[in-house]
Amino acid sequence: MLFRTLAKPDFKALVERILASTEVIGPKRVGTDRHGRPIHHYLPVESFDEIDLDYETTEFSAKTYFLPYKENLCSYRFQDDDWRQEIRYRIQPRAIIGLHACDIHALIKLDKALARDFFPSPYYISRRKNTFVVGIDHDPCEGGFCRSLGTDTATHGFDLFLTDLGERYFVAIGSDRGFRALSGLPAAEITEQDTEDYLRVRKRIAAGFKTEINVQNLPNLLDIEFESPVWEKWGGKCLSCGSCAMVCPTCYCYGVSERVSMDFASGAKTKQLYSCNLIDFAVVAGGHNFRPNRQTRLKYRYYHQHRGFMEAYDEPKCVGCNRCGRTCLAGINPVEVIRDLQAEDET
């Protein structure tokens, strides 16, 4: 990989250059929670100063910019007895500034599930390829367990990746597009001093992780503990509200619905991100529900995260961001659920 350093004012100049021609999404502070902690969301920004790169985490992942919560899959025009189908894909470029490594790993996982092997999604690919991704290193967020999942650093899946060295950024260039974006800016070849400083920062970050879990045995454990009382315990608390899947950077399940305009002249087929915790997720024609209980549905979510995805892609779907744990009003968080399962296995 190519590396450069970029002085912070020059990075600002780069973002302003992007802003001049392209929509820019960045972490924006939107408020304060009841404990006095700042709340950040990835939102469109109009100036560099709206971006707060020093954020700890965001309440929601950035997936909606790649996998919108609601997306029009096609439109229909009706005339007489007939109809025509119209499909449009996104072609406008966009930049996302300031994704953390876990969220870049989330994109890499979504790439595998949605853009490769079988039935690659033109909707996802269009958004992914039209999005310029700038990542940034950060000190561990509270409760995050990305290090246990190997998603605390990113080596691909981005155009540029920044590490804050104080006055300047250490910049990893992940694509030709990233390289071209730097052209004309005083980006310097890295020196020995830069490398030394970079490694020191990486070490500091690595030492900061407090939350760790063992995920190695999970695929097998989930199979063995299929009837575990752990599911009863946590499933009984589940509100079946789907919030965990909505904030998750890799949950991609969806449902499709259609509607017709009141004058019956046009219609649309819409995809809405859904959650396996919602009661009708596994209802089939005629009304039979294959997962009528909360605990079955919650178990299924862990099954997909740590076993199903593993079987298909040799890695868990979870990136350890703990957004689901933070958003869950009932306090269901993956670290405790997994530890409970493992404790159950040992008794």
Binding site: D33, R34, H41, E59, C241, G242, S243, M246, L273, L329
Partner: peptide, 28 residues
């Protein structure tokens, strides 16, 4: 729809009102 209000709040990036100290029947 059979899902609770929370799902749509999340889809609109609405900050959870419980986080702001308010009571909200959204989850049910």
């Amino acid at each position: 729809p059979v899902y609770p209000v929370c799902l749509e709040c999340k889809q609109h990036f609405t900050v959870c009102l419980f986080d702001k100290g308010q009571l909200c029947l959204g989850p049910i």
